[in-house]
Design a protein around this nucleic acid. Structure first.
Length: 869
DNA sequence: TTGTTAACTTAGAACTTCCCTA
DNA sequence: TAGGGAAGTTCTAAGTTAACAA
């Protein structure tokens, strides 16, 4: 494989599932089985002890939480202060106190970590520090280990002071001067308290001119609205670029966010049970019990960590809001949430059973209530807001082995939320009691509201919708940056290919990491904390994640973003193979493979190769470039629409595989494939019947190539079975029709038909199928009605088309059962590739882009057929 | 210089709507 | 014309990155 050919093709790599890699056991020892190169017999590479993996102790959180109390209580700043907050229903119990500083958690962690000379306790405990061997190797092909200048947070072991003179310099030293935009200066001065500024709804209402139209007249109104919206599309991509991009807006008006409704207690007859007995819960603890009750049939409820975290948090709530009947809830296993679950299910069923008009009414009421939050005024233009609904309280559904999954996510109140709004804009009034935490006027950011979530202290933002000008601009810039890489990529590849043999360990590791990012589209792979799921990306790969297989295969097996497994057995260049062997030497499974590379250092280097280049840009570039190449390669001369769509989806699928975008196989996949197979055969049966009819008219047609060939995959047994099924269905249909006709007659006060009518119809069907049975095995049959050979031939040709197209659909569905196409389409494939391709091949864009995607990518729709990524 | 954090993008799961079939 | 499955949409978790702070 060449080093400059872009992402690996599927011949080079395989993505499979469930392959158990025995290689782990001898992963490190593997080296000894490999052909020795001339460097092998030299003295061992002197590596500074590599970083260790913090994650290995992943269960700590859940285990310790028993004694430490639940996460809720682990940080004093997070203690609920429900009593002080007057709120309806159980709101208080699930509410995060406004006082906490978002940093509290991190600071706490930091302190704990630095207790011990700056080293993390756990890894230290887990493994004795490695003996540092002397650097004496001068092997031509083994990189010198240039010491890191400081210990990394995660697992770089302390390096001796002597090592600190750094020979590990990047080829190009980048200036680190980063300009601070106007941002910071603004921020502080702009924060102010909301109350003073609240000048009422009247002004705020100006924002949503659509709102008051509510009383207008039905249909015409809707159409008019749509037209209006269309008119309003701001063609930002045709406007002059404004400045350096750091200022995002001049004026901004919006109505804030919409809070979920307060908790409503369950009807008095719905009670959870404890130890078999009903428990009377106050609303505060009932609400939290309900969060769990709704999930008892889901996989979450089968998860011990989830259950443990939920129960710990719930017990905290119960301490403050104990059962009204004095029940002491201490054992999770004695809790029975089934009555709650059943109630929720019945409510769902009731909702489902509403008539269409009732549903419509409810939806309209909701839409009307939300309308004013759905848009904002950005520089005087109306733009859609994205997630204007505040996340409701619930149980945290962390993915994979997240140690905090199941924890209680508290209700967010106005006091938690900072709004970002134009200086002269009216401050909106929250739709629940309370005052905003603060108001700021920072026009260098795009968010309208933010708050800090209580479980991981992560920041939540309200942004504009995907179709807004701000998001569109940023999207277009992303793809333009990726396209720019085209002009640099050859040089970059040449550079890293050279560095694969660098004498400096850091450079060699970096080059190897770049190779993976470039060829395999791996993510950068930041460090992760102990209180997160153990997932990795390129820079954070550990030795256990890569296995060498002679002569030149590397097997990757790790959990990536969202704990999705990345499994790939891939052929690599000899030098890569050798490097990985060297990087793994003297390390243990849970040591970092690239112990001298961080995402920051890697990106710094990338930026020196091309301004603005990061690991992420490579992923976008490779996805789009691959997609363009695959589309260009497919020969669609004379292809049908379905064939074109299939070619497109195939290219899309290959990119999705490259990016490892997976989905779980739909539960009904096998069943639906079987149905499709039956339908496919049915179509072939129909065509066979037409052919035989044609031959019955004139045997000369038997000589025409396209008609003479028999349907290969339908045999006699199948035909018997199929005809039987058809007969039953026909009879059933006739019975239903008969019943319906009679019903109608009765309604109209007419006499219903006699049963003999139905009997006659059934007899007719049976005779028809008897005739078919007689025809079995014959290739010439009589045709009913006044069909001409031309009509029959036309019918056969149409069926042939349908069969072909249907077959393609089947293949498409089966091949795509584990691959999520949407993620790459939404995020990685330059939409202009699709727009241009559609024009070239005369494919309507709506066949490939849903309405949402068309709204997201208006800027891409006008490219011409010459445009290439 | 390095760790932390704010701000943003990317991601699969969960939910809703649409459309086809029986 | 319901109901079942696929497609589309929403939700929010989980990444990346660069500015900021120590």
């Amino acid at each position: 494989m060449s080093t400059d050919s872009g992402p690996l093709s599927d011949e080079d790599s395989t993505m499979g599932d469930g392959v158990d890699l025995n290689g782990h056991a001898n992963g490190i020892g593997n080296g000894s089985h490999l052909p020795m190169s001339d460097d092998e017999d030299m003295s061992l590479l002197q590596t500074v002890p590599p970083r260790r993996n913090l994650k290995r102790k992943k269960s700590n959180y859940a285990e310790s939480s028993d004694e430490d109390d639940i996460p809720l209580a682990s940080s004093p700043a997070k203690q609920p202060t429900s009593a002080a907050i007057p709120m309806p229903g159980a709101v208080a119990a699930t509410t995060v106190p406004s006082s906490k500083a978002s940093k509290s958690k991190r600071l706490g962690t930091k302190k704990e970590e630095s207790d011990d000379d700056g080293y993390l306790k756990k890894p230290q405990k887990k493994k004795p520090r490695k003996k540092v061997k002397k650097e004496e190797s001068s092997d031509d092909d083994i990189p010198i280990v240039a010491p890191k200048s400081s210990a990394r947070k995660r697992k770089v072991k302390p390096e001796s002071e002597a090592e600190s003179s750094d020979e590990d310099k990047p080829i190009i030293k980048k200036t680190s001067a980063r300009k601070t935009p106007a941002k910071k200066a603004k921020k502080e001065e702009d924060v102010e308290q909301p109350a003073s500024k609240v000048n009422g709804k009247a002004k705020a209402r100006e924002i949503n001119d659509g709102e008051d139209e509510g009383k207008g007249k039905g249909k015409g109104k809707k159409k008019k609205k749509e037209e209006e919206q269309e008119e309003e599309v701001y063609r930002w991509w045709e406007a002059d670029p404004n400045g350096d991009g750091s200022v995002k807006w001049q004026t901004l008006e919006h109505n804030g966010v919409i809070f979920p409704p307060p908790y409503e207690s369950l009807p008095s007859h719905v009670k959870m049970k404890y130890n078999g007995k009903d428990v009377r819960l106050p609303p505060e603890s009932e609400e939290v019990a309900g969060f769990y009750g709704a999930l008892i049939e889901s996989d979450h409820a089968k998860d011990t960590v989830f259950n443990k975290n939920f129960f710990n948090d719930w017990k905290e709530i119960l301490k403050k809001h104990p059962p009204l009947d004095g029940t002491k809830i201490t054992t999770f296993e004695k809790c029975d949430f089934r009555p709650m679950f059943d109630y929720f299910e019945s409510e769902k069923a009731k909702k489902k059973a509403l008539s269409a008009s009732e549903k419509k009414e409810l939806k309209k009421a909701k839409d009307d209530m939300e309308l004013k939050y759905t848009t904002c005024l950005l520089d005087g233009r109306k733009e859609k807001v994205g997630n204007f609904r505040v996340e409701p309280p619930g149980l945290f559904r962390g993915r994979g082995e997240h140690p905090k999954k199941g924890s209680l996510k508290l209700r967010v109140r106005p006091e938690d939320i900072t709004l970002n709004i134009g200086k002269d804009a009216p401050v909106p009034i929250p739709n629940m009691p309370g005052k905003w935490k603060s108001i700021q006027h920072d026009n260098t950011v795009t968010w309208l509201a933010t708050w800090t979530e209580n479980i991981n202290q992560s920041h939540k933002y309200v942004f504009l919708a995907a179709g807004s000008s701000l998001k569109g601009q940023s999207d277009m810039m992303k793809f333009e940056k990726a396209r720019e890489l085209k002009n640099y990529v050859d040089r970059i590849r040449a550079n890293y290919s050279g560095d694969l043999r660098s004498k400096v360990m850091a450079e060699r590791q970096r080059a190897t990491a770049m190779y993976f990012i470039d060829k395999l589209a791996l993510r950068a792979g930041n460090e992760k904390g102990e209180d997160e799921a153990d997932t990795v990306g390129c820079c954070s790969l550990r030795c256990e994640h890569v296995t060498l297989e002679s002569p030149n295969f590397i097997i990757f097996d790790f959990l990536g973003k969202d704990s999705i497994r990345y499994y790939n057995r891939v052929a690599v260049d000899a030098q890569i193979f050798k490097n990985i062997r060297i990087f793994k030497e003297n390390k243990e499974d849970d040591d970092s493979l690239f112990d001298r590379v961080t995402t920051a250092s890697l990106n710094k280097h990338l930026n020196s190769e091309m301004k603005g280049l990061t690991a992420k840009v490579f992923r976008t570039y490779n996805a789009s470039a691959t997609f363009q190449r695959l589309l260009d390669e497919s020969d669609l001369e004379g292809a049908t629409l379905q064939e074109k769509l299939n070619a497109y989806n195939k290219a899309n699928r290959l990119v999705a595989i490259l990016c490892n975008h997976q989905r779980s196989v739909p539960k009904t996949h096998d069943q639906s494939m079987e149905k499709m197979r039956q339908k496919y055969k049915g179509l072939k049966y129909d065509r066979m019947k037409l052919r035989h009819g044609l031959f019955g008219m004139d045997s000369k047609y038997k000589k025409i190539d396209k008609y003479k060939e028999d349907e290969s995959d339908i045999d006699d047994d199948w035909i018997v079975e199929y005809e039987e099924q058809m007969k039953s269905k026909e009879i059933e249909k006739a019975e239903k029709k008969f019943a319906k006709e009679n019903e109608k007659l009765t309604e109209d006060d007419l006499k219903p038909q006699l049963d003999s009518v139905l009997e006659a119809r059934i007899r007719h069907i049976e005779e028809e199928f008897k005739r078919l049975a007689k025809e079995r095995g014959k290739t010439t049959v009589a045709v009913k009605g006044n069909k001409t050979p031309e009509k029959l031939m036309e019918g056969i040709d149409k069926l042939t088309e349908r069969i072909k197209s249907f077959k393609l659909q089947m293949v498409d569905r089966d091949e795509g059962k584990e691959v999520a196409l949407g993620t790459s389409k939404i995020n990685y494939l330059d939409p202009r590739i699709t727009a241009s391709w559609c024009k070239i091949h005369d494919v309507p864009i709506e066949k490939l882009f849903s309405k949402t995607l068309q709204v997201k990518f208006p800027w891409a729709m006008e490219v011409d057929t010459e445009w290439k990524f």
